Amino acid sequence: MRANQKRLIVTVVVFVVALLPLLIPHGSAPAGSSFIDKLAANIKLGLDIKGGALLEYQMLTDVSDQEMDALADRVIEVLRARLDAAGFTEATVEKVTTGISFGEDIPPVRVRVQIPGITDVSRAESLVGKTGRLYFADVLAIETSVSTPSIPAGMSLEISRRKLQGAEPYWVKELHYGEYVGGVQNNTWYFISPKVSIGSSYAELDGSVVTDAKPLVNNQPRPGQGRFMVSLKFSSEGAKTFRDITSVKSTYADTDMKKRLAIVLDDRVIIAPLVQSQISDGNAVIEGLNSIEEAKEVSILVGSGNLPVDL
């Protein structure tokens, strides 16, 4: 056999082997699709063909360019975890350092996210752009109002005392504020303190000590409990703090506001339940969510960690 014939055979074999991944249907085409549709599903299409969302963010910070570069790496790590957890495995997250030619005052380091195939761009923006800051807080008052309520009467001394401890209270909205349920608009506000009182001292508990967060569906909820929730697992340090907090709060009467512990995400109260007993095993549950999609989003935002900077 001539040398050029051998080279031709080798070339054809290599070409066929290279095509095998595309010729074997293993894509995500719907059931009942034709053979050609199944082959097409093997090919990952970019935004120019498949469509989708392209989001580019600048980091709101005054740090040096070198520090900004390191911040971008951490942002990319968090966003990659969020997108993977949400099922957007084809999405790309990259650092952009090219200059701006049209004169706008934009930082030299930015983060670009491309999500092929997504049709709900607002969902992508919500998932990517939220800070995901989770923390636990004392509840000092609950009111219903269409605007920010006034400071509750008779609370000046309590506010001054907490201010000295770096725990000055403020009003935040309930997670579903403004939404209508059964024809009634939710206008609930919570007056919260970001540090939790434990006797004469204060404890701080936030998402940095959460090691795992998963969405749950409770098919047999108790009255008023709701079906959709998120389970949280704390680190050993967080579990100890959570035990100390629940140990104190469980001693108050149900009518005492001190018995409540607010779980807050991005300055929205998800739920503020009464603490009925001490919790020592480092596990907690966030209830009061309206759907499994909302439970998934909360678990992703909490479980992927906080963004180190606002976008």
Rank of each mutant, 00 (worst) to 15 (best):
K6T: 10
L8D: 10
T11R: 09
F15R: 03
V16Q: 07
L19F: 12
L19A: 13
L20H: 08
L23I: 10
P25W: 04
P25I: 06
G27Q: 04
K38P: 01
L39H: 06
A40P: 00
I43N: 08
G46C: 09
L47G: 11
G52P: 10
L54P: 04
Q58C: 11
D62S: 13
E67G: 06
E67A: 13
L71G: 10
R74G: 02
A85M: 09
A86N: 10
G87L: 07
F88V: 07
E90S: 15
A91I: 06
A91R: 05
E94V: 11
V96F: 11
T98M: 07
F102E: 14
R110S: 01
V111A: 07
V111R: 10
R112H: 02
V113Q: 00
G117H: 06
G117K: 04
D120H: 13
L127P: 06
G129L: 03
T131E: 12
T131F: 06
G132K: 00
L134E: 00
F136G: 01
A137T: 11
D138V: 09
D138H: 06
A141G: 00
A141T: 04
I142S: 04
S147D: 15
I151P: 05
A153V: 11
R162V: 10
L164R: 14
V172M: 10
K173H: 03
H176D: 15
G178M: 00
Y180D: 05
G182M: 05
T188Q: 11
Y190C: 00
I192E: 01
I192G: 10
V196G: 03
S197E: 13
I198C: 12
I198R: 14
A203K: 15
E204T: 13
L205F: 03
T211A: 12
K214Y: 08
K214M: 07
N218M: 08
N219L: 12
Q225C: 02
Q225R: 05
L232I: 01
S235F: 03
E237N: 15
A239K: 01
T246N: 02
S247A: 15
S247V: 09
A253I: 03
A253D: 08
D254I: 09
D256T: 09
I263H: 09
V269H: 01
I271W: 01
V275T: 11
Q276S: 14
S280Y: 08
S280Q: 10
A284S: 15
N290Q: 13
S291F: 04
L301H: 09
G303D: 05
S304G: 05
V309S: 06
